[in-house]
Computed example of a mutant assay.
Amino acid sequence: MTEKDFIPKEYSAEIEEGKVTWQSPSNIALVKYWGKKENQVPANPSISFTLDSCRTTTTLSFQKKENAEGFDFELFFEGEKKESFRPKIQKFFERIEVYLPFLKEYRFKVETSNSFPHSSGIASSASGMSALALCLMSLEKQLDPEMNSEYFTRKASFLARLGSGSACRSIEGGLVNWGEHQNIPGTSDLYGIKYSHEVHENFRNYQDTILLVDKGEKQVSSTLGHDLMNGHPYAERRFQQAHENLDLLKGIFESGDLSEFIKVVESEALTLHAMMMTSQPYFLLMKPNTLEIINKVFDFRARTGMHLCFTLDAGANVHLLYPEKEKKETLEFIKSEMLQFCENGQYIADNVGSGAKQLA
């Protein structure tokens, strides 16, 4: 599908007012997207696990206006008006207006809340923008009742991407690809697609325990971080590496080889941070406790032969990934030896989920 496929024809229904609620999860990338072109197009393909417990719940109330001049919206986060979010939503509406031409015809109230700390490296923009995109698509579905579910899902992912790149991977569950890759048919730079190849039972209901090393705001925004890849001395090799690692994971998902899975995932996490440490300006987003946790992971694997591994987003928090069949022993280890490195001993026990859900 192309961008033109998402520009609607004349709507067949009229809606005066209403309310819709969606819950959308965050995701954790295994092969990282870092660097982008114009219009939120990724510089390299990525693949992620969709999470379950880390999610955003968004309610969109809408009422028809007398005139269609300008975007009219209010934002509430955790029950409080949030003016600091306005510029991001304004920019989002400007980007998607051509695809949702009704935006200026309604007055919107957006009420949103997270099950996890905002802006702490757990991809709150992914869950937040995907939830909002789904709410807007539910309104468009009312205006166009003949819209089918496949188009609804594709367009929701397409719109979410224009708000936050990784948000396009939060619509569907399980493993989700985003970005064109020649060896995975159907992949697109415009939206995420559910991974369509064979996946070994080892990766079903995979566990993700998130250690909250630092719950504060990130040192560098994702937007700035992506921009630092423009002119980065190692950028082109990094983009090539992402394609290579996707090919490796395709075979790993089929075979169920957890040791090889660990090599790819941990390398990707460290490469992401290496890109930031070697950019201009440079950033060091890991904290001392991040490194303590990583070394503990290495020790645990060497001692037990189990398959605990780590990955990182653009922050200090650590995602600990492990198969469900090793959950009991691994979680006991995490609780007894890892929580000392977390802010106030806090962590989130999560697992791979089934994607976004409409609540009302």
Rank of each mutant, 00 (worst) to 15 (best):
E97Q: 13
K327G: 00
D72N: 15
I184M: 05
Q23P: 01
G355R: 07
F73P: 14
E83Y: 11
L284W: 01
N177I: 01
S24I: 02
P101H: 05
H118N: 11
A314D: 07
L339P: 00
S26A: 13
Y33W: 10
S124P: 01
R303D: 15
W34S: 09
K64A: 10
S61K: 12
F283R: 04
G251F: 04
G18F: 05
E83F: 09
S196G: 15
H273Q: 10
S196E: 14
L321V: 06
F108Y: 15
F261C: 01
D257Q: 02
T304R: 10
T112N: 12
K357G: 01
K327S: 11
K91Y: 07
G231V: 11
L51W: 01
S113F: 03
T209Q: 00
F116D: 01
E16L: 11
I184N: 06
K64V: 09
E140V: 02
N44S: 11
S279D: 06
S222V: 05
K296W: 03
Q142Y: 05
A156F: 09
Q280E: 10
V31W: 01
S354D: 14
A314M: 08
A131M: 06
E83D: 15
R204L: 15
D5G: 11
S125I: 09
Q63T: 13
I184W: 07
K155P: 10
R154Y: 11
C168Q: 08
Q63H: 13
S354P: 00
E332K: 13
S84E: 15
F298G: 00
R237G: 12
N177A: 01
L134T: 03
S124I: 03
I89L: 12
L134V: 04
T187G: 09
V41I: 14
K91F: 06
K81C: 11
V199D: 03
D313V: 08
